[in-house]
Design a protein around this nucleic acid. Sequence first.
DNA 1: AACCGTAGGCTAACGGTGTTAGCCGGTCAA
DNA 2: TTGACCGGCTAACACCGTTAGCCTACGGTT
Lengths: 182, 182
Amino acid sequence: MSARPEPRPLSPRASEIVAAARELLEEQGRDALTMRALAERLGIRAPSLYKHLPDKAAVEVALIERGFVELGDALHAAVADSAPSHVVANLLATYRKHALANPGLYRLATSGALPRQRLAPGLDEWAGTPFYLAVGEPHLAQALFSFAHGMVILELDSRYPDGSDLDRTWAEGARAFSSLSP
Amino acid sequence: MSARPEPRPLSPRASEIVAAARELLEEQGRDALTMRALAERLGIRAPSLYKHLPDKAAVEVALIERGFVELGDALHAAVADSAPSHVVANLLATYRKHALANPGLYRLATSGALPRQRLAPGLDEWAGTPFYLAVGEPHLAQALFSFAHGMVILELDSRYPDGSDLDRTWAEGARAFSSLSP
DNA sequence: AACCGTAGGCTAACGGTGTTAGCCGGTCAA
DNA sequence: TTGACCGGCTAACACCGTTAGCCTACGGTT
């Protein structure tokens, strides 16, 4: 098991900014994450933020990195703790739970173009390896991950018809993929 | 088979605007779809657009509706033309092909909050019913659709590692879901 | 003790966004 | 002929990310 890539460390003040950004993101959504709003929450003015971080993308990158670390930790733990017969189900349940608990961060990290160049190298792949560990075959793992992401992002965006029994939908997906894994 | 919900009709000039918006969207991406850029392409100024459409969201709604109609048509046709043993594979192939052929429109229609209130009622559900027709069970259908969307949106956003063999990943997913459908 | 560099605030401003208010010319019907 | 309205226009507003440049307070050096 390869070591977890670590995000580049931030100065203490930059960490405070990123923490405030996360609150703003989760409390009021992606559109509310504004340099001016972020500064106001810290009691300063927007241009002062640029003394600590180069631009808004850097704030987002820091948030995304933290999101991947937390999600990856949760998924690795889920796989490590699961009996083989329940790995897939447990992995999916963990994925869903974590994403729904941090919707703003999940969306930020997984929708739209990823600034891969600026991310800690290998971090996103590390966060995804539990899917491979769960099913033991790379393409099936990718398919399972795609299913999980599709489920989560559609749920977050309220794309399912009202009254959908998503628990059952997840269960059907788990059944489909479990039937192919060893 | 229920009839296809029709988007509310637009005035001729509004249709021209939406057509130009689509070109802009596909040629230069979502961020380039700007009221000023859109107006310029039509040889007018941005505020004049508001004589024909109430706001930018109306432009997007019109685009999304057209996207759903086209995608739904393609998927319904794919299901109608497929032998039962190949329905799932054909449906997925059609979904992928259509989405990759219209990436800007697909992203616009499926990522982020959907202004359901403003969409032609039932249109998005109609576009999704081929998944039900293909597998014959609503939860499995929802899971299959989620898989397809996850695959497409991750491919569009270049989220898979370089060199991924996505054809095989799609095939694995098709295999997983086919193994559960009648 | 005097100095100086720097860290970290600030205001003003620029170009971009969606959008509104208000003006004005042309067309077409009464 | 007149009047309504369609569909352009300019000016402007509030917000966005971002830059330039100023200023103050503090820590270390001479």
